[in-house]
Design a protein around this nucleic acid. Structure first.
Lengths: 339, 339
DNA sequence: CTAAGCTATGTAAGCGCTTACATTTTGTTG
DNA sequence: CAACAAAATGTAAGCGCTTACATAGCTTAG
């Protein structure tokens, strides 16, 4: 941490022979400054390797030009595309992006964990369950701009959110399985406890079964955990219970990949013995043997949309209350289709 | 941007009946404060929903507790694991992470693009070619803590960097292709112009051929661009030129995936007609048909290591000059192995 | 009982900017 | 060329914190 007096605005002002106000005007292009002065200031800036102190600007102007993103965990295939979308949005509007991962470590301090507070940023995007409801409520009370991504607002809070048409996507997928492929005993591999995405996908699954007069067998609904390992384990569990099933609908592709491994391990062929479908259409799904039938979720678009809404909120105070992005059925061989 | 006087430290001080210095002491646990007072202060903080203003703290304490990451682009399979590693490191040491994507848009302003400056963070990690050498030099001049990730320092600058043993990994891979599988005419799909990773992998390739007295055919070295589309195009080019080749070494798995598609399209079987290998071992590689032989690069570890070095640099002023992480040969079917 | 030594707290000077307001130049017009 | 508007620049008051330094109480030893 060797400090050596980085140049400040005062140094620049002195070198250019003007006041700091003028330097500020030149840098921010606010107010009018003669051309000659402008040039002198830029020259001084270059000569001194000057760069404004972000914290000082933020303090003085109460704007940070930064958007915060809160998430709990960087993992899975989901993350990359999502961040790409978010970054694209922030870049487009000239904002910076500050990412904060909330720790799973349980609270030690009385309070004030200020994860990424209402001061570091002009607004924040909250992904999933990364922030406790009471913290969200707090930001809401402060009237701080917030957009939720892939989670709906806690009861009573009128906060915009962006997500997928999960229920409809799942519904179409299971309808297809029943109507076109003729399966009736379809297992469901749920996501982790509390996941909204999983919740709605399961709802779509149940609705479809109900609409086809198929009774739901609770033993066919097991935890897939949105990850490969648990997806694999889930198949083991299904097999152990011995209830017959013709198809598996994994609530996300990661658990579907695990399930595929589990089925192969058990000597079952996909789709001849058991059909398999997932949700999300992450990259590997296309390359599996057999390629995975799934529902494409516009992950990147959702991220971008969240940013757009947030920036609207910051700049105009208004945003769409709810944006649910449509999904698309992707039919591949794993469900028994010829393709 | 509805403002409504968020609580400041003054409000807390008043409510708790103490001075702001005491509040500061309580929050930062610096200096001694009686238990009774501490409690009153925390209560006031809770009652007011107070959260300290990061910019103000930063200004006053000249510490940001934030590590910056500069990259040019969020894309590919590479990005997720890398960020995971970086995040793990920053979290472990209690730092925040600020990500800045440099724009590809060419310079418009005289200077002072202050991308992520020496003020927003206590130190930064520069990925790849995301920052121009003269900007790196500038930070170096300022003695600002910097660690380079997957790029070596510009000439003359003594900046720590973290990368892979690219040359050795490529060398072992090509040696294996020649010694164990008996191929001699091996094509190389390079990465984009200026990529150091690609540069060293190509070097390893050339060394291996030279060591086996195999002449290098310039027509067998084509641009794979580190992405699927260009990988596919590269195969087309190879085929058009008509020079025979028994194997393709793609400088990364993404281009290998493209190459695989290209070969299939041309009616060539892998590995029977042409063997194929990649580099990185990204997730889909395992699921390809046939599974891809490749070199596993510890992407996540590299990210984490970069953070550790940076924090060392920040806290002690010292860090390893160069860390090259070892790679591991992953043999799968695409190279003609039985597995 | 007093000086020394803690502990607990307060005072106030910035940190490096932005910005409202004041002041000085320069240009325009009748 | 006086009179006034517009342009160019300067002055200074904070923004919300941290932190050296100063100041009160209390102990405790002498």
């Amino acid at each position: 941490m060797s400090e050596h007096s980085r140049a400040t605005i005062d140094d620049v002002a002195e070198k250019a022979g003007v006041s700091i106000a003028t330097v500020s005007r030149v840098i921010n292009k606010t107010g009018q400054v003669s051309e000659a002065t402008t040039t002198r200031v830029w020259d001084a800036i270059a000569a001194l390797d000057y760069s404004p102190h972000a914290a000082a600007r933020g303090l003085a102007s109460r704007r940070t030009n930064t958007i915060g993103l809160i998430l709990q965990d960087i993992s899975g295939e989901f993350f990359g595309p999502m961040l790409r979308g978010i970054e694209a949005g922030t870049r487009e509007y000239g904002f910076d992006l500050l990412i904060h991962c909330t720790h799973k470590t349980e609270n030690a301090e009385p309070r004030l964990s200020y994860p990424l507070s209402e001061h570091n940023s002009d607004g924040i995007i909250i992904f999933n369950e990364s922030l406790a409801p009471h913290e969200i409520a707090r930001l809401y009370r402060l009237q701080f701009p917030v957009v939720l991504l892939h989670r709906s607002p806690p009861a009573g809070l009128d906060i915009p959110y962006v997500g997928f048409e999960n229920k409809l996507g799942a519904r179409k997928l299971v309808d297809y399985l029943i109507d076109e492929r003729g399966y009736r005993r379809i297992a469901f591999l749920s996501g982790p406890e509390g996941s909204e995405d999983s919740h709605w996908r399961e709802k779509g699954y149940r609705e479809s079964l109900a609409a086809h007069d198929i009774e739901i067998d609770p033993d066919l609904v097991v935890m897939g955990g949105f990850n490969e390992a648990q997806g694999l384990a889930a198949v083991g569990q299904l097999l152990t219970w011995g209830k017959p099933f013709e198809a598996i609908f994994a609530a996300d592709d990661d658990s579907a990949i695990g399930a595929l491994a589990g089925l192969k391990e058990a000597g079952l062929r996909v789709p001849e013995d058991v059909a398999l479908v997932g949700f999300d259409d992450i990259r590997p799904s296309h390359y599996l043997t057999p390629p995975l039938t799934t529902v494409r979720a516009p992950i990147e678009t959702a991220g971008r949309e969240a940013v757009l809404q947030l920036i609207n909120l910051i700049q105009t105070g208004k945003a769409e209350r709810e944006i649910l992005l449509p999904t698309e059925l992707i039919i591949r061989r794993s469900c028994g289709a010829l393709t």
